[in-house]
Design a protein around this nucleic acid. Sequence first.
DNA 1: GCGAGCTGTTCACCGGGCGGAAACGTGCGT
DNA 2: ACGCACGTTTCCGCCCGGTGAACAGCTCGC
Lengths: 151, 151
Amino acid sequence: MPRLLLLEDGHHPPEVNDCLEDWIRVPAPEIDVQSRVATLADRAAAHGATQEQPPHLDDDGVLRAGGNWVPVPPVEARLLRTLLERYGAVVSRESLSRAGWPDRAPDRNVLDVHVLRLRRRIAPVGLAIRTVRSRGYLLESDKRQQGVRNA
Amino acid sequence: MPRLLLLEDGHHPPEVNDCLEDWIRVPAPEIDVQSRVATLADRAAAHGATQEQPPHLDDDGVLRAGGNWVPVPPVEARLLRTLLERYGAVVSRESLSRAGWPDRAPDRNVLDVHVLRLRRRIAPVGLAIRTVRSRGYLLESDKRQQGVRNA
DNA sequence: GCGAGCTGTTCACCGGGCGGAAACGTGCGT
DNA sequence: ACGCACGTTTCCGCCCGGTGAACAGCTCGC
């Protein structure tokens, strides 16, 4: 997708809208062309890296994310499904409780234990469950770090 | 923040990491320089439009700003909400006090402590609470400089 | 049938976040 | 110098959530 326009003499520079687009007048020093190509390549790589496809839990309890997959047992699958429905947003403990055990409400830390196990289960595929204290849980990529500031 | 490096003959092109950075060999046709400047200006405008979305505190006590998020506990959330309602303007200590503790008025110092905690909590997402002495507080981006700037 | 492994549940304990209070430090105006 | 306004630290009680371990039911392979 990145492109470098080679501009012959006597033409106007093109209008560039895209970060993955550039131009240069030819003839030009080889080092100049290489430099611009390298810059575009870096940008394309960075773009691809930031484009993450959302994880998906299929009907057979298989979670696919980050190029890998893990089996997810029934209860955890129900929890995970509701977390995925609100991917990146907070899900209350009550919602999870209802989703995981539709018939009867479980004890306080039954949910805790299953969340813990779900955490460990999804870690290998690059997902993380964050706690929002007294509010609920939040599913996101484990590369996103809450509250960390990049220089 | 966009910058165009004017490269004299005999030098290597710089390593470019940023979409807001570019370079050109001088001397060069005026139209070429103008084109690259215009491109950078467009990108800077686009970046500003997409990057600087106003901070938002959702109902689950999650503050999203600057591409990151932090959980905000109840009392601080109430303070933050009133500060956000008057984003960039002064909010009196009385208003904050009423917002944070609707039932009873807290000790003078309790508000101070919570403002301090809130300051530290929102710093990672690029927000800052400024003091306007004997008037109140003001919430803004931490990149803005308080105080007088000479031209 | 029987043991191994997996799933779901319960218990006990611990660490840490949250919010309040007091004490002390600091900067500014008069 | 004094007082006022605000900042910062420290301490503590409370409660939420995390964690390891143990336990019961179930399924599967032998």
